[in-house]
Structure formats: structure tokens, C-alpha cells
Design a protein around this nucleic acid. Structure first.
Length: 636
RNA sequence: GCUGGCGUAGCUCAGUAGGUAGAGCAGCUGAUUUGUAAUCAGCAGGUCGUGAGUUCGAAUCCCACCGCCAGCACCA
């Protein structure tokens, strides 16, 4: 039966009989055939050995295509498993997917891999590549596949097959003696796999469940060209220099020590940044009709029992006691905010009622989760709770999202992902409530044309949430802003208002934060700006550097003027060369350096040098003040 | 919490057939009065994470604990 194939440029090719992809590539051009990794028909990726039997659109995939690179990485994972099996026959293979920038493969083995073994494995991978092994697709029955993997002692593989639905075709891929279960597609030959590097070893639970065995995971990265690989590795090294823990040490912002794991000692410089953020948010919230409150740090166990936290989270709370009463140090402020709401009778006319608190919370996070100031055990939330009617949800959610976007804008964040998390397996409240709540959040996102990712089952036990996630220097995501709908806790803690019809109704509560935790947000912005904070955030905005001590009097006058103008200034009168002073203050990332020598003193001007070494020339102190104040106001 | 790695001066790091510690920077003292990213010299600085053990002798070897780093799990 003749078939007609449509190419990406809309041209057509005719064949008299079914034809494999590699043949089509050959017919198109020999050079294309040489680098063909796979084919794409009807949006589905297939091996080059795949035989096309019907009229269809077709595309040849090479390493230049995004999908081609993914296939390369996937095949690299198989190559890794192949090498491991040759070197460590007793290791069992499990899964080996593609991830951002590379791949990993999980192995079950008695002893973990060492870093020396990692290089040996990498070397073996290169050897296998040189063997030019064809990679062939096999389609076996379930019985045959299970029997095969059991026979060769690959029990995890057998288990994986058992979990695959009966109606699905089982495909396996063979390169030399190595056979792995895989959906495919794969590159046609191991010779295509050259540009890769194994990066790290780590433990990982089988099926991502901590109750299961811990497997040994090997991570690798793979690229189309050597240059891409080098570029990636250099970029990683550069990214590591942005680590907020390193920068904070260099800039003397804060420290954490053994006696207080996950708890921050803020130094003077760091606290300046902290306070700027706090006051900035305070102003924004006040403008949005929030009223700031402050609630106790520890509260009696009975309140946490009522709220449901004791049952669900008491292992994660710090507990203390006094006179036979057990108290929990608050892990969040919401139950306390309801207590404030409950004081006095509330009318529907009071709603929406917006409370804000810079609530210092303690959570006993697992030791392995702690990470600088991005994940701590003590942190301050820019917390807030909106009490409103069901009808007001949409409007309040929209107001919140606009506010969040407005604030993130001031920090020039471009890479924020928005995640909608829906009901978890264990949750309170009725399905009807959840349906309503999830829909309300989804509608808000839709109405505001905000793209989001869905995270099914990731919601809080009392309600669904919208999360704003930001990335750190190494691309790890951290939750910052959040909006959580709660139809449950107000009722549980006895909140009510008098409605228009004179009945008592339970308000809906919106939990919300924009920075999330001040600690985490500061960590994120340090990495985001690589420590070079914009003027409005810089702990020291300008340093005055004298050439000799003859200019001390004039320098002090300037210092005083700048301080009166509300600028954060340091003065360096040390008997050092100007180059030395410039270097030190530059390393401290001070945005503007004022050089004061005899010339300046005699003309009553200042010479301004930017952090990036640009000479702004001489100007009067007043002109400089104005320049800085304008820059601060613009948040640039 | 789990797996692996790591923990030496204020900071960055060196220090294995086990013989009781070293550099640079910072600090202090002195000299230098200097024009846009490191002036010179001298001095001082460490219970080698903590505890217990092996040994004539431990930063080094063994064990336990604490913390940090990476990943996993967790993240109200």
C-alpha cells in the first residue's frame, strides 16, 4: 500500500511500502541520516528503526532539537546503567529518567558508590560508547519480560512491569549484553553518546517513599556539544558563588551556629536589610487596608488541639511547659489571629477584615531539611489573614495576587512559578467545600490570566492554595508567597459574624503571605542579586574614602549631610592607599564610593565612583544626595 | 529523619606508612600621607567539632554524638 509522508516544510514524499525512519532520513540527505536520533510522527517520538505504515506528518529528530537532547540524556542514563552492571553485576537497576540538564539512574546495591567508583563508571561508559553498539528495541510479552528480569536477578524491574497496565506493549532496549525495560525512544547506537559527565552520588528512596529501601542514585549531565557541557559546568561554578551563605559571610549579614541549628543570628548589616523589607511590606499592607496585630509566641496546648495542629503536627512543634501546663511555641499565627477576630461581635459590615503580623514562628524541621536561611527552624512570616464572606473570596484573592505581583516587580523577579495545590489525601471538611474552594482559586487565576502548574494533593489539610515559587542560585525551587483558602479553621475555633439576615455565619479565612518568610526571601534576593543589592536595599549605600587624613574634616561634613538626608553611609579615614580602600569597599558591594582628596576638599565637591568602576565625575553633596534619593525611590 | 561527604587560626585552605600543626588574607605594632580593585616590615593568633577508645604517642586509626554540605524524604 503506498504511503504519503508530510515533512516539516510541508513538502511530501511517497513510498510504495512501509518504510523505517532511518531510510526516510537517508533519502532526505545522507548527512541528516548520520545524525538522526529519532523520528516524530503524530506528535509521538519513535526510534529510527520504527516503520512508518500510514500517511502521516513526519519529522526527523537530531541533537539540535530539544527532544533530541532529551533522548540523548535518556540514552545516557541507560549507558550509565550498562556501565554499572558491567562493573558491579550484583547491583540492581531500577529507574533512570531525564531531568533538567541531564539524567540520573537509581541502583539497589549493598554498599554505596564512592567517588573513585564514579570516575571508574564514567570511564567504562566511554568505553561502551566506543564499542558502537546498536541500540535495539524489543517488544516482549509481560510473562517473558518478568521471567527474564527475575532470571537475571533484577527484581525491581520485575516489580515495575507488574505495575504497568496489561494493555500496554512492553518494550525493552538492548545494547550489547545489556537489556533494560524502557518506553523509549533511544538513540540508534551508543556512539551518539559522547558529551556527558557524572556529577554526583546520593541516596534516594525507592518510589520516593521514605518507608522503602534507599537506593543509590547517580546523577549525570549530558549535552549536544562539548562547548555546551563546558558552558553548563562553568555556569554551575558561577552559580555556586551566588550562594547566600557565602555572600552573607563575606558581607557580615548573619550567622548560624551549632547551638541554634536553623536559627539566625542577624548582624547589624543584615538586620538593616531585614528591617527595610519589613517596613516596605508594612507600608504596602497598610495601603491595602490591613491592620497589623501581634500575638503570643507560645500558647496552651488546648488551643492547638482545637485547631487540629496538635494532632497533625505536634512532632514538628517545639513544646515547653510551665506549672503543669503544656505550651507549644507557635508554628504559625492563624489560630491566634482567629482569637483576635473572636474578640467582640463582628458584623458582615466589618468584612473583609484583614489582619497582618510579622509573626515569628518556630517549626522543628527535620535536620536534613535545613538550608542556610532558606529553610530554618525559626522564621518570621509576613503573615496575614483575611476574614471574609464566600462572596468576597474572588475579589480578595484577586487583590492579593495583584499586590504580590506588584511587590515581586520591585525585586525584578522574572522567574516565578505559580502552583495551584489541591486537596491532599487526608483533609478536613466536605468534598463540596473543597470543590468550591479549588474552583474559587482556579477562577481567580484564570480571570487574571495567570498561567499556573497544578500540584494535585499538595494543598494544606484545611484548604487548597496558590503558591509562588522562586529559584535559588542552583535552580532549586522555594515557596515564597502563598494564598490559602480555609473554610475550616474559623469554624473549628468558633469564629462567626452576624449576617444581614441577623443569623450567625462562619467567615471564610484566607491565609496569605507574600515574602513567605523574611529569612527565606532575603536568602533568595541575595542569590538573585548575587549580593549586589539595589540601592534601596543595600545595607551600606555609599562609602566616603579619603585620600589622606587632611580631608578628614570635609569627609565628616559630607558623612553627616548624607546621614541627615537618610542615606546609609560609611566613612573610611584610614591611613591607606585609595586603591586599597576602593578594593575593600567594592568587595563589600557598596553601590557608590565617594573619593575625597585635596581637589575635592578645595572645590567642596565629591568624586563619585560606582560599584562597577564607572566614574560619575565630581558633583556637590546636594546633587549627589538628590541622585541617590531618586534612585532609592525608583527602587532601581 | 535517611544515604554519602566534610568539620584544622576571625576567613580561605595546606597538613596519611600515627611522632603533640602551617600558608595567604584579616588582626595588632611600627614605618609610609598615598588619586580610583591589595604599601612594607615585625608580632601575635589554634583544647585540630565534642566525647570516649586503640597506642609509648592521635589532626591523622576505631566508636558514639553534634553540626555543615549534596541528594532523597518532609515543608501546616
Amino acid at each position: 500500500m503506498p504511503i504519503t509522508l508530510t515533512l516539516p516544510d510541508s513538502s511530501q514524499r511517497h513510498y510504495d511500502a512501509p518504510v523505517p525512519i532511518y531510510k526516510i532520513a537517508q533519502d532526505l540527505s545522507p548527512s541528516l541520516a548520520k545524525c538522526a536520533l529519532a523520528g516524530k510522527i503524530k506528535g509521538r517520538l519513535v526510534d529510527t528503526s520504527f516503520i512508518v505504515k500510514e500517511n502521516t506528518a513526519i519529522q526527523i529528530i537530531t541533537a539540535q532539537d530539544e527532544e533530541g537532547l532529551e533522548i540523548l540524556r535518556h540514552s545516557s542514563a541507560h549507558l550509565l546503567a550498562h556501565a554499572v552492571k558491567e562493573l558491579f553485576p550484583e547491583a540492581q537497576v531500577t529507574i533512570g529518567p531525564v531531568i533538567e540538564n541531564g539524567f540520573y539512574y537509581d541502583f539497589s546495591c549493598k554498599t554505596p558508590f564512592t567517588s573513585e567508583q564514579l570516575s571508574a563508571i564514567e570511564k567504562r561508559m566511554h568505553e561502551i560508547v566506543k564499542r558502537n553498539l546498536p541500540i535495539q528495541r524489543l517488544e516482549w510479552s509481560r510473562e517473558k519480560a518478568i521471567a527474564f528480569f527475575k532470571e537475571i536477578g533484577e527484581h525491581y524491574k520485575a516489580e515495575i512491569i507488574s505495575a504497568i497496565p496489561n494493555n500496554e506493549t512492553l518494550s525493552l532496549y538492548q545494547q550489547g549484553d545489556f537489556i533494560d525495560l524502557c518506553r523509549g525512544p533511544h538513540v540508534p547506537n551508543t556512539k551518539f553518546l559522547k558529551i556527558f559527565k557524572l556529577t554526583k552520588i546520593a541516596g534516594a528512596y525507592w518510589r520516593g517513599d521514605s518507608k522503602n529501601e534507599m537506593l543509590q542514585r547517580i546523577y549525570g549531565t549530558a549535552w549536544t556539544t562539548k562547548e555546551d557541557l563546558e558552558k553548563y559546568l562553568t555556569a554551575q561554578e558561577e552559580a555556586e558563588k551566588r550562594d547566600h551563605r557565602k555572600i552573607a559571610k563575606a558581607l557580615d549579614l548573619f550567622h548560624i551556629q551549632e547551638e541554634g541549628p536553623g536559627m539566625v543570628f542577624w548582624h547589624p548589616q543584615g538586620l538593616i536589610l531585614y528591617r527595610i523589607l519589613e517596613n516596605y511590606i508594612r507600608e504596602k499592607l497598610t495601603a491595602q487596608g490591613y491592620q497589623e496585630i501581634r500575638t503570643p509566641q507560645i500558647l496552651d496546648r488546648s488551643l492547638w488541639e482545637k485547631s487540629g495542629h496538635w494532632e497533625k503536627f505536634h512532632k514538628d512543634m517545639f513544646i515547653t511547659e510551665s506549672e503543669k501546663h503544656v505550651f507549644a511555641i507557635k508554628p504559625m499565627s492563624c489560630p491566634a489571629h482567629i482569637q483576635v477576630f473572636n474578640q467582640g461581635l463582628k458584623s458582615y459590615r466589618d468584612l473583609p477584615l484583614r489582619f497582618a503580623e510579622f509573626g515569628c514562628c518556630h517549626r522543628n524541621e527535620p535536620s536534613g531539611a535545613l538550608h542556610g536561611i532558606l529553610r530554618t527552624r525559626a522564621f518570621t512570616q509576613d503573615d496575614g489573614h483575611v476574614f471574609c464572606t464566600e462572596e468576597q473570596i474572588q475579589e480578595e484573592a484577586t487583590r492579593f495576587i495583584h499586590l504580590a505581583q506588584d511587590i515581586y516587580n520591585d525585586f525584578n523577579f522574572e522567574d516565578i512559578s505559580i502552583v495551584l495545590s489541591t486537596r491532599p489525601a487526608i483533609h478536613v471538611g466536605t468534598e463540596e467545600m473543597w470543590n468550591k474552594a479549588e474552583k474559587a482559586l482556579e477562577d481567580t487565576l484564570k480571570q487574571n490570566h495567570i498561567p499556573w502548574k497544578l500540584a494535585p494533593g499538595d494543598g494544606a489539610f484545611y484548604g487548597p492554595k496558590i503558591g509562588f515559587e522562586m529559584k535559588d542560585c542552583l535552580g532549586r525551587s522555594w515557596g515564597c508567597g502563598t494564598l490559602q483558602l480555609d473554610f475550616f479553621m474559623p469554624e473549628r475555633l468558633g469564629a462567626s459574624y452576624v449576617a444581614q439576615d441577623n443569623t450567625h455565619k462562619v467567615p471564610v479565612m484566607l491565609h496569605r503571605a507574600i515574602l513567605g518568610s523574611l529569612e527565606r526571601f532575603i536568602g533568595i534576593i541575595i542569590e538573585h542579586y548575587a549580593g549586589i543589592l539595589p540601592l534601596w536595599l543595600a545595607p551600606v549605600q555609599t562609602s566616603i574614602l579619603t585620600i589622606t587624613d587632611k580631608q578628614a574634616v570635609f569627609a565628616n561634613e559630607i558623612h553627616q549631610k548624607l546621614q541627615i538626608a537618610g542615606l546609609r553611609t560609611k566613612i573610611d579615614l584610614r591611613n591607606e592607599k585609595i586603591g586599597f580602600k576602593i578594593r575593600e569597599h567594592t568587595l563589600q558591594r557598596v553601590p557608590f564610593l565617594l573619593i575625597i582628596g585635596e581637589r575635592e576638599a578645595s572645590t567642596q565637591t565629591i568624586s563619585v565612583r560606582t560599584l562597577h568602576g564607572k566614574d560619575l565625575g565630581s558633583m556637590t553633596t546636594d546633587a549627589f544626595c538628590q541622585l541617590l534619593l531618586e534612585t532609592v525611590a525608583s527602587k532601581n
